[in-house]
Structure formats: structure tokens, C-alpha cells
Amino acid sequence: KSSGQLMAEWGLDDVDYLFSEEDYHTLTNYKAFSQFLRPLIAKKNPKIPMSKMMTVLGAKWREFSANNP
């Protein structure tokens, strides 16, 4: 499932962030990516359980990696 599908299924607000060329150069591993995106997700979904946060971050990382030029 996509991150958007997961968040909709769980009734969470998705984070629409348009990644720049620079993001693809600086966010080169999962740790850097999650440190960048986790606060954005948490801000829109302050009560998100950690298990769902990790699942969403994993899905967003897969999508980000697939779109990386």
C-alpha cells in the first residue's frame, strides 16, 4: 500500500511535501529521511502511534527511493 492509502485507512492527515533535487542529494539514507519527515508527520498527527509512524515512514521512504532520479 502507498503511504497515502495507509494514512487514509487510519484516518490520519497525509503530509504533502514536494521533494527538491537537493533533498534527493542530502536525504541519502533512511535515518536522514526519517529525521527529516517524522516531525512533519507528527505535527499534522500528534497522536499517531509509533507503530503506525514507522509503517508510514517506511512506505514514504520506498516511494522517495523509487522517485529518486
Rank of each mutant, 00 (worst) to 15 (best):
G11R: 08
S34K: 12
A8L: 14
L12W: 08
L57F: 01
H25T: 14
E22H: 14
F64H: 01
W10A: 08
T28K: 10
T28Q: 09
I48M: 13
E22W: 08
T28M: 11
G58A: 14
K43R: 07
E21R: 09
G11F: 07
N45D: 03
R62D: 08
T28W: 03
D13Y: 13
D13V: 15
D14A: 02
S20N: 07
A32F: 04
H25E: 13
S20W: 01
L18F: 10
Q35E: 09
G58R: 15
L6K: 06
F19R: 01
V15S: 06
T26F: 09
Y17H: 10
V15H: 05
A66R: 11
S2L: 07
S3F: 10
P46L: 03
L40W: 12
Q5K: 12
F33N: 00
D13L: 15
W10Y: 15
K52C: 02
M7V: 04
G4Q: 15
G4P: 08
Y30G: 02
L6S: 03
W10S: 08
L12S: 03
D23A: 02
E21I: 07
D23N: 08
Y30M: 07
K1V: 05
S51R: 12
Y24A: 05
G4C: 15
N45F: 01
T28V: 09
K1C: 12
F19V: 04
K1I: 05
Y24H: 12
F33W: 01
Y24G: 04
Q35S: 10
I41Y: 02
A66F: 09
G4M: 14
G58Q: 08
K1W: 03
D13F: 13
H25K: 15
L12E: 02
A32Y: 08
L57Q: 01
K43A: 10
N45S: 00
Q5S: 11
G4K: 14
Y24R: 09
D23W: 00
E9H: 10
V15Q: 02
K31I: 09
K44D: 03
A59L: 13
A32G: 06
V56I: 12
K31P: 10
T28R: 08
L27T: 01
E22F: 06
S20K: 14
S34A: 13
K1F: 03
K60M: 12
D16S: 05
L6N: 04
D13H: 14
V15W: 03
A66P: 04
A8Y: 12
S2F: 04
K1S: 05
S3V: 05
P69T: 03
L12F: 14
